[in-house]
């Protein structure tokens, strides 16, 4: 698959006070394949937003190579054609207070290159997707946080971009709207768009994404497939009767024993007489738990799900 987003050895430094320099990104390498849903994970200040701002043209002056759709962003007018294929929802989006929903959407759609006829159809589409039809004549100053987020997603997808960059898209949404956002994102992906988003709600990343990267203190710690990551979770043998050495009490007369790939025969042989095997299954580990453990082991050798102590 071709990469839609490529970072090669990208470093970026902010100017602090006087001669102070703040290094926000340190030789970041990242590849986001076309058609994927890519979760960009990191704690506050890890470098997620800086990376996104480099992609969207809000920051420039980086070292290394940032490419969109295979073409390097050069900070020139040539980037416009690449940015026309991108939809962006910023974190905590703010909008002009004194414009109506329909005016604002038409304004941004026009900037993205839609014709007058195309704008009407595009607006109707996002009104339906995000239930904004009844609000189209409302000024944005009267919107709640959740409504602003809905409008934010609407403006990001109005021109049906090939790449959707979403910074904390679920922020401020109630459970119903989180579910709707997931549906809309699935629809966008079904249309062929690539999703690239950062989120603190890792269960959403787990549900939506097939690939991930973890960034911490400006460096990408690791990246890969979510399925591979979750597939690293250890197998657990659950049984009843006499418990073998190393087993944990699971309640109700049951015990649980880690069952690693290379030690299966030895573990089976060590089962005491009368022990009864009930089931063998992969341990359920939430991405969130893994993420916390991964960040805590900052810059250490990668933490595998099998290394995690909880069951």
């Amino acid at each position: 698959m071709d990469a839609v987003i490529t970072f090669q050895g990208v470093s970026f430094t902010y100017r602090g006070n006087w001669l102070q320099r703040i290094s926000a990104l340190k030789r970041v390498d990242l590849d986001v394949p076309a058609g994927s849903a890519f979760g960009f994970l990191g704690a506050n200040g890890a470098g997620k937003s800086t990376s996104i701002k480099l992609l969207t043209g809000l920051l420039h002056g980086h070292c290394g190579r940032v490419a969109l759709f295979g073409s390097e962003l050069a900070g020139s007018d040539a980037d416009r054609r690449l940015r026309a294929r991108l939809g962006y929802l910023p974190e905590h989006p703010f909008f002009y207070d004194n414009l109506r929903v329909d005016e604002y959407l038409a304004y941004l759609a026009r900037l993205s290159g839609l014709s007058a006829g195309g704008i009407t159809a595009a607006c109707e589409r996002v009104y339906q997707l995000l239930d904004l039809g009844d609000l189209r004549r409302r000024m944005l100053r009267s919107f709640s946080k959740g409504m602003r987020q809905r409008f934010g997603l609407a403006q990001a997808i109005i021109h049906q971009p090939d790449l959707l960059v979403l910074d904390e898209p679920f922020s401020g949404l109630d459970p119903l709207w989180r579910a709707r956002f997931r549906e809309v994102m699935a629809l966008e992906r079904g249309r062929g768009a690539t999703l690239f988003f950062s989120s603190h709600i890792l269960s959403d990343v787990e549900d939506l994404c097939d690939r991930y990267a973890v960034i911490d203190h400006g460096s990408v710690l690791e990246q890969g497939r979510i399925a591979d990551l979750l597939g690293q979770a250890p197998m657990i043998l659950t049984g009843s009767g006499p418990a073998p050495a190393g087993a944990a009490d699971a309640g109700g007369g049951e015990w649980r024993l880690p069952f690693p790939e290379g030690e299966r025969e030895a573990r089976l042989a060590a089962l005491p007489p009368g022990a009864r095997i009930l089931r063998l299954e992969r341990q359920k580990v939430a991405l969130e738990d893994w993420f916390v453990a991964r960040i805590r082991a900052t810059h250490g050798a990668g933490v595998k799900l099998g290394d995690m102590s909880h069951g």
Binding site: T56, R83, Y88, P90, P93, F94, L111, G113
Partner: peptide, 14 residues
């Protein structure tokens, strides 16, 4: 300050 230009500058406008 209000970040209202984020959704504008990220579009194909110089």
């Amino acid at each position: 300050t209000n970040k209202t230009l984020y959704t504008v500058i990220s579009r194909p406008i110089a």
